[in-house]
Amino acid sequence: MFECALIQGELFRKLIASVQDLVQDGNFMCDANGISLQGMDSSHVALVALALKKEGFVEYRCDRDVTLGINFANLAKMLKCMGAKDRLSIRAQDEGDSASFVFESEDSSRVSNFELKLMQIDQEQLGVPETQYKAVIRMPSSEFQRICKDLSAIGDTVSISVTKEAVKFSVGGDIGSGDMSLRQSESGDVDGDDSEKVMIELEEPVQQNFALRYLNNFTKATALSKTVTLSLGTDMPLVTEYKMDNLGSIRYYLAPKIDE
């Protein structure tokens, strides 16, 4: 028997919205420590990895490892029926062919029950090695979303270059070129909370090219976290990570475009 509950069901709806345009369906691997999901986009250029910890749930019980094969668009149709402040419970029998989703309003005046048919998905998992990155940038997630959206109107490939002073996003296209630089916030800044700052940890300067349409897809997770962390290495996938307090994180990996 697997069951878990979130006070803020809305968070789970945002999680599914963050992956459903990149990956059609996937396996939620549930074990005693939490839920993980991994999936690649159809062109195998991007990988999304979701890791939810049991500590982030108000209730969590997993007697035996359970794999829930889910079509995200179908799940999203059911989650759409959930109230913004509803509590979400998910339940599945060990060998069941469906999973139940229960939404309950705060005052329990409204309770909704949905049963989603599960799929058999044969999906190989990719091993993501622990990596020492050349540069790690933490910045406001809304700022990153805006940069990717606005620059993609000018070009389809963004060059991200990082020095210890700043991170620069550059594009070029038919109409011309442009770049946007974010300076590292002064560490002394006392005003504003940390989530508004741009922090750069630099091993050594690095520059890489990425397809903007994937980055724009990743920023669908902006609602999950006020900050986003970008990790870059030379000729390595970019890691775009949104951390959700004690619930866990969603990580997007994007293969670079390399000059042959």
Binding site: M40, S43, H44, V45, A46, L47, E124, Q125, L126, G127, V128, P129, T157, N209, A211, M236, P237, Y253, L254, A255, P256, K257, I258, D259, E260
Partner: peptide, 14 residues
């Protein structure tokens, strides 16, 4: 010539 790599180029299947 700029080529777009696939993610499997970097990560191995388990």
């Amino acid at each position: 010539r700029i080529i777009q790599n696939e993610i499997e180029t970097f990560f191995q299947f388990k």
